[in-house]
Write a protein that binds this DNA or RNA. Structure first.
Lengths: 149, 149
DNA sequence: ATCGCTGCAAAAATTTTGCAGGTAA
DNA sequence: TTACCTGCAAAATTTTTGCAGCGAT
């Protein structure tokens, strides 16, 4: 296995417990199982992908949808759109390092995590110019990977 | 009506005819009607929104789906994802000025067209660094508009 | 003992497809 | 005439919801 640094997401379970308790929500088997799958996978997964990686019968697909909505509201996962109309979710890294983007191969769907981000100053300008507050962005790159060219 | 400059998309119909003929495809009523709707609307529309703007019975919803796929392949429309999992389509402006982004209010769904773009040099770096070719990007901004704050 | 959560099943919403007849070229 | 295209209906996908029972706190 490759060494990773910004992929480390080990804080997930204690953090989940803390945040759930704080909202009077429960730490259940399905929720831990889902978080485990996300923790082991470095890139966004669809609900069905999570479902199929879970031990057979471990958790209902509807529960996965419900759990991901909850986790998204708790800001523990981030939703991504890769342009095919299917929601994908990735665990938010610990601390403030969560925000990042992806480079996706349109041939084989390989995903590379991208550190670079849209310039903050320019985003601020865009917000100010239009009178918007709390502006964020979604940004994904698409292209052909070395093998698919 | 407000004056517009970069929203002008009047070239649509002759261009459509030219491109369709070139591919041995046909200039039909539904296709012209759909293009007309897109031409009159400055921001991305969903299939259903196009459907409901069309005179009752003018065109089947399935035909709209089929037409938009065709137009997307012909690069006459561009598909956008506003983060809700529903496909939206906008007419590509004439010439090379087509590429742009949007600032979307998460409160009322108001859409503002944004001229600024991800820095080309940085995108090139990202492509080179990962050995990718033909790299493009999708970028949308989200925030709260003046009224919704 | 609560109140939230889950599985199951059904429904809703979005998108795709098959087919017979109609239409642009 | 010949492909292509359309409407209609049905199907396939993805996502949401209702409800009765189970389970975490």
């Amino acid at each position: 296995m490759k060494h990773s640094h910004h992929h480390d997401k080990q804080v997930a379970l204690p953090e989940l417990t803390r945040q759930l308790r704080q909202k009077a929500r429960k730490v259940t088997g399905p929720r831990q199982a889902i978080l485990n799958i996300l923790r082991q996978h470095p890139h966004p997964l669809t609900n069905k992908e999570i479902f199929s990686r879970l031990p057979k019968g471990e958790c209902d697909l509807a529960t996965i949808y419900r759990s991901l909505h909850l986790l998204e509201n708790m800001a523990m996962v981030q939703r991504y759109d890769f342009g095919d109309g299917v929601a994908r979710y990735e665990l938010v890294a610990a601390g403030a390092a969560g925000h990042h983007h992806h480079l996706i191969c349109t041939g084989c769907a390989e995903v590379v995590e991208i550190e670079d981000c849209f310039p903050h100053k320019l985003e601020k300008q865009i917000a100010d110019r239009n009178g918007f507050k709390a502006v964020t962005h979604k940004l994904e790159f698409f292209g052909l990977c070395p093998e698919c060219q």
